[in-house]
Deep mutational scan, measured.
Amino acid sequence: SLTLTVRGEEAVRRWYKWAQAHNLEVEVETHGDEYVLHIK
């Protein structure tokens, strides 16, 4: 499992696509303009 902090929706989309390509689940938490992604 992997936890990432990114800024901006574009980065979130990029990681989301990456995770889907690897059959992984993604949980997204929003903290202001930062997003915490939990990839499992």
Rank of each mutant, 00 (worst) to 15 (best):
Ser1Tyr: 14
Ser1Lys: 12
Ser1Phe: 12
Ser1Asn: 13
Ser1Gly: 14
Ser1Trp: 14
Leu2Ser: 04
Leu2Gly: 04
Leu2Arg: 06
Thr3Phe: 04
Thr3Ser: 09
Thr3Met: 08
Thr3Arg: 11
Thr3Leu: 07
Thr3Gly: 04
Leu4Phe: 08
Leu4His: 04
Thr5Ala: 07
Thr5Leu: 11
Thr5His: 14
Thr5Ile: 15
Thr5Tyr: 07
Thr5Trp: 07
Thr5Lys: 13
Thr5Glu: 04
Val6Pro: 02
Val6His: 01
Arg7Thr: 11
Arg7Asn: 07
Arg7Gln: 11
Arg7Ser: 09
Arg7Pro: 03
Arg7His: 12
Arg7Gly: 04
Gly8Met: 03
Gly8Thr: 15
Gly8Lys: 03
Gly8Asn: 10
Gly8Glu: 05
Glu9Ile: 15
Glu9Gly: 06
Glu9Ala: 11
Glu9Gln: 11
Glu9Ser: 09
Glu9Arg: 11
Glu10Thr: 08
Glu10Pro: 06
Glu10Phe: 07
Glu10Lys: 10
Glu10Leu: 09
Ala11Leu: 09
Ala11Tyr: 06
Ala11Asp: 07
Ala11His: 06
Ala11Val: 07
Ala11Gln: 09
Val12Glu: 02
Val12His: 02
Val12Pro: 01
Arg13Glu: 11
Arg13Val: 08
Arg13Trp: 09
Arg13Met: 12
Arg13Tyr: 09
Arg14Glu: 10
Arg14Gly: 07
Arg14Leu: 12
Arg14Asp: 06
Arg14Cys: 15
Arg14Ser: 08
Arg14His: 08
Arg14Thr: 07
Arg14Gln: 12
Trp15Met: 05
Trp15Asn: 00
Tyr16Phe: 15
Tyr16His: 08
Tyr16Asp: 02
Tyr16Leu: 15
Tyr16Arg: 14
Tyr16Asn: 05
Lys17Ser: 10
Lys17Gly: 06
Lys17Pro: 01
Lys17Gln: 13
Trp18Phe: 05
Trp18Asp: 00
Trp18Asn: 01
Trp18Glu: 01
Trp18Leu: 03
Trp18Pro: 00
Trp18Tyr: 07
Ala19Glu: 00
Ala19Thr: 02
Ala19His: 01
Ala19Met: 03
Gln20Ile: 14
Gln20Lys: 13
Gln20Ala: 13
Gln20Asp: 06
Gln20Val: 13
Gln20Phe: 09
Gln20Arg: 12
Ala21Trp: 10
Ala21Val: 10
Ala21Gly: 06
Ala21Leu: 13
Ala21Tyr: 12
His22Ser: 04
His22Asp: 02
His22Met: 10
His22Gln: 08
Asn23Asp: 09
Asn23Ser: 09
Asn23Thr: 04
Asn23Leu: 06
Asn23Trp: 05
Asn23Phe: 09
Asn23Arg: 07
Leu24Asn: 02
Leu24Trp: 12
Leu24Pro: 00
Leu24Gly: 02
Glu25Met: 12
Glu25Thr: 15
Glu25Trp: 13
Glu25Pro: 05
Val26Glu: 00
Val26Cys: 11
Val26Arg: 00
Val26Ser: 01
Glu27Arg: 12
Glu27His: 12
Glu27Tyr: 14
Glu27Cys: 13
Glu27Ile: 15
Glu27Ser: 13
Glu27Lys: 11
Val28Ala: 04
Val28Asn: 02
Val28Cys: 11
Glu29Met: 09
Glu29Leu: 09
Glu29Ser: 09
Glu29Lys: 08
Glu29Thr: 12
Glu29Tyr: 11
Glu29Asn: 05
Glu29Trp: 10
Thr30Tyr: 11
Thr30Val: 15
Thr30Ser: 13
Thr30His: 13
Thr30Trp: 09
His31Asp: 10
His31Trp: 10
Gly32His: 05
Gly32Thr: 04
Gly32Ile: 04
Gly32Lys: 05
Asp33Trp: 04
Glu34Ala: 10
Glu34Tyr: 15
Glu34Asn: 10
Tyr35Trp: 08
Tyr35Ala: 03
Val36Asn: 03
Val36Leu: 08
Val36Trp: 05
Leu37Tyr: 01
Leu37Lys: 00
Leu37His: 00
Leu37Asp: 00
Leu37Trp: 01
His38Tyr: 11
His38Asp: 02
His38Gln: 06
His38Thr: 14
His38Lys: 10
Ile39Asp: 00
Ile39Glu: 00
Ile39Val: 05
Ile39Pro: 00
